[in-house]
Design a binder for these strands. Structure first.
Lengths: 290, 290
DNA sequence: GAGACTTACGTCGCACGTAAACATT
DNA sequence: AATGTTTACGTGCGACGTAAGTCTC
């Protein structure tokens, strides 16, 4: 069944004439006959009484009329949606984020987004950055704002927004608190508190401790940096944290002059067309970055 | 644009796979690709992100989804209407009738119809029988219950239901009231009150007075037989009326033993498919006739 | 006889299937 | 390597237009 048949049907119904309908449709009159005939065969009914001068809807044809109009209306409405609403965010924006990003980077962004697009509801999914990347890869979500992996899945598309410089952090009363700079070997004597194995941040840290990794005394692992911060403040051990988390309870020390950093930013799926809402959020993040 | 494309779209959207959709639709997978591609070209947008294992709706595709479902629903609903409601009168039944039929023949029928089909609203159009026949011929109405013409338009289909036997009618105090039977010549001496020129009944009467027609003293014409009855009762003249209208105010006399009659019944249009409501009314009239 | 629809028929386009190429995982 | 989609191409159905036939008015 074809939409052209519906169009022919409506034209004949309105004009009560196959030949006038043919004119309107810019086809020949036998073509109109055939379109109607096919609709009739399809529906196994008669749609018009061909009564010489006029062709008039049968009862079956009359009851098709509103349906046919609604079908064309649906198509028309959709085409208008495509044309007009293409750049107006609305509805819900779902995004994944990590606890750290959600706590330290996102509040500002979300506030600005709500001001710019008050009609969009936000649906935040807190999860570990690694899980967020898996969800994105599996097309379960289309947008994540998390810690970026160093060696990402090929299916992911990364867009760094913020850089976290990492430093060794100590309690003010830690034995090494007085040193100007610290090296790997010094730290081996003291207990460490690190992000959980498997986290992107832990992998970055591991890279820098590659040679001494196995000798470290790791007394606690957690995927929540805030916990690490509290533990370090209580002088239970040293750790490595973004300098943005430093405050009076912690002392930061560069590691032998090295520059250690991780990227936070946007994760999307390669080849996936993003919703208007996601695009708006991404554009806002990119604009804020400069 | 074709409905098969909509079907393909919905299948792929649900199954997130072109090949699974192909299975469901019992066509090959390249055929599905082509159907989707054509929809996309038609709408000038992309409906699915083809991401290896899964194919996922784009935002444009998501917004097509409800429209596509409604389109199929419209078709399904119509098919069900055709299948189920085909013999259940409902809604409105429009019919034309004459004053005479509406007064003397229809009330009974309408009451029975309302009892049988309480859900059907009646829309009565009172008009002269001749006008009703013209309206039917012009497809302005599909059903009339009126006095039937003697020489009908070929486009009309007539179905007699009742026979009205006509007699000469006189006031009880008319000069001819004592005669057993009356002939044309006797009547020429007295004033006549006849149905309007142009009415079917008048034509019938004219046939029987063919030879003496021009000599008649017609003092009043009207298309409303009730008026004629009152005038005759007041002894303003003689007339010819259906014997069904006789009562104590009138005396009926056969015209020289001749049997003069008119038919009342159904007028429809040749070749026109009738609504269920009209068919129900016609069937009821035909059943009552026997 | 004029106007309107259907039927007949030849042409061309398009939808399908098969098979091969390409992409993703 | 396996799964999935697109491209290429040949076949056949079907939509169209022209022209003739049929019917209504």
């Amino acid at each position: 069944m074809q939409i052209s048949q519906i169009n022919a049907f409506l034209a004949v119904a309105e004009l009560q004439s196959f030949s006038l309908a043919a004119e309107r449709l810019h086809i020949t009159q036998p073509a109109v006959s055939k379109r109607i005939r096919q609709l009739e065969d399809d529906m196994k009914t008669t749609l018009f009484d061909r009564i010489g001068k006029k062709s008039i809807l049968t009862p079956s044809g009359q009851s098709l009329l509103p349906h046919a109009e609604r079908i064309l209306l649906e198509l028309k409405t959709y085409r208008e949606e495509l044309a007009h609403d293409h750049d107006k965010p609305s509805g819900t924006l779902s995004l994944a984020t990590s606890h750290h990003v959600g706590l330290h980077r996102l509040p500002q962004v979300l506030r600005d987004f709500k001001i710019e697009y008050p009609g969009v509801d936000l649906d935040l999914h807190f999860m570990d950055s690694e899980d967020a990347c898996i969800a994105i890869a599996n097309n379960e979500l289309e947008l994540a704002i998390v810690t970026l992996p160093e060696n990402p899945d090929d299916r992911l598309k990364l867009e760094p927004i913020w850089i976290d410089v990492l430093q060794i952090v100590l309690a003010p009363d830690h034995a090494l608190a007085g040193e100007a700079s610290i090296d790997n070997e010094q730290l081996l004597d003291y207990p460490a508190i690190l992000p959980s194995n498997g986290t992107f941040t832990r992998k970055i840290i591991n890279n820098y401790f590659a040679t001494t990794k196995d000798a470290m005394k790791i007394i606690l692992e957690t995927n929540y940096l805030e916990t690490i911060k509290v533990m370090v403040s209580a002088n239970l051990g040293w750790s490595m944290l973004p300098i943005s988390m430093l405050d009076h309870t912690l002392i930061g020390k560069p590691l032998s002059g090295l520059d250690i950093r991780r990227s936070l930013g946007i994760v999307t799926r390669q080849k996936r067309t993003l919703s208007v809402n996601s695009r708006a959020m991404i554009d806002m993040l990119l604009a804020a970055k400069t």
